[in-house]
Simulated assay, not measured.
Amino acid sequence: MRPDYVDFHTHLDLYPDLQRAISTCDRRRVATLAVTTTPKAFERNLELSSCSNFVRVGLGLHPQLVADRHHEIELFEKLLPRTRYVGEIGLDRGPAHYRSFELQRSIFARILRACAEDGGKVLSLHSVRATRPVLDMLDEHLPPDRARVVLHWFNGSRSDVRRAVERGCYFSINERMLGSTNGERVLRDIPKDRVLTETDGPFILRGDTPIAPGDVGCAVEMMATLLEIPIEDVRRQILSNLHSLTATL
């Protein structure tokens, strides 16, 4: 079954009802990457999505949780052969997580090396205030021909965008990003064939309500307006980009 939309970074297991969230993505025909924040969450996500036509599950170890959950890296490595998708992983150098940054780097390096060894993975990466360290570590530990990389909610400079594009990275964009001047600039800097949509639900709110699973329509409309191209052209381009991203390495 062909999808109508793409949500390449969402936390379905953080909605009140995971099974209902999966069903919503299926009903809306949204190709969805359900990232996890700890390896212990992965198997339940995998089990409940096993019959889904549109939801795939990423194995994750979120950098904001590394300080408390770094011991789960061995479980991560054990589970890695069971999935093609990895996320949410990366680095966070924000004030609340700066103290764990060196530990984050150690865990991230270990994850990248495991992905390089296993091969054929598609990664969704977090890079808050850490764009250059993330790109540096990709260059050091993960050869481009061993995996594909999607930079989630990317906030880097123009030179960072160029560097990531040259490396072959894709970028997943959400409606909150597109409501900021910097997010608009990032969108315009990215080649059209490297853009995907995401919700990052349930963390993005509309008013006081979390964005619904797979609800990327507003992001598609905002992209079309900012780039001055038809909405349907944007939707089709994103689907084409997903196909290119997930083509066999």
Rank of each mutant, 00 (worst) to 15 (best):
A247R: 12
D160K: 07
P133M: 06
T181P: 01
E221V: 04
R188L: 14
V220L: 14
L187N: 00
F108Q: 03
V161G: 00
T131G: 03
R113G: 05
T37P: 02
F76H: 10
E166L: 06
H62G: 03
R113V: 08
P191M: 07
K78N: 06
V66R: 02
V57T: 10
H243F: 12
I211F: 02
S127R: 03
N174A: 00
R185M: 11
E166H: 06
L135M: 09
V149E: 14
D13A: 10
I190N: 01
Q64N: 09
C51T: 13
A67S: 13
D7Q: 01
D208W: 06
G156E: 05
N174Q: 01
P143R: 15
G120P: 10
V195Y: 00
V55W: 10
G90N: 09
E117Y: 14
L103N: 02
G87N: 08
I190A: 01
E117W: 12
L226H: 11
R206F: 13
A212N: 03
V150A: 08
M137L: 15
F171T: 01
V57M: 03
F203P: 00
L75Y: 12
P143H: 14
L142K: 05
R105E: 14
R185L: 13
R27K: 15
D92G: 04
R236G: 03
L48N: 04
I111R: 08
A164R: 01
S157P: 00
A147M: 14
E175F: 06
H71C: 10
T36S: 11
E228A: 13
T197D: 04
D189P: 00
E74N: 13
D92F: 05
G207R: 04
E184L: 11
Q104T: 10
V186N: 03
D4P: 01
F54M: 09
V234F: 07
A130H: 02
R188Y: 07
L91V: 07
F154D: 02
C51I: 07
R235I: 05
L249E: 12
M137N: 14
A130M: 05
E77F: 12
D193Y: 06
R110S: 15
A114K: 08
T36I: 10
F108D: 03
P202D: 04
G168H: 03
G94M: 03
R44A: 12
C25Y: 00
R2D: 15
F76Q: 04
G179Q: 10
D215Y: 04
F154C: 08
S100Q: 02
V35G: 02
S106R: 14
A164M: 02
V195N: 01
L227Q: 11
G58F: 09
R206I: 06
R129D: 13
D17C: 07
G60M: 12
T197P: 00
R206S: 09
V57R: 07
F76I: 06
V128D: 08
E232P: 02
T131I: 11
L123I: 09
D233T: 14
D160S: 10
S172T: 02
D139E: 15
L112N: 11
V66M: 01
R113M: 12
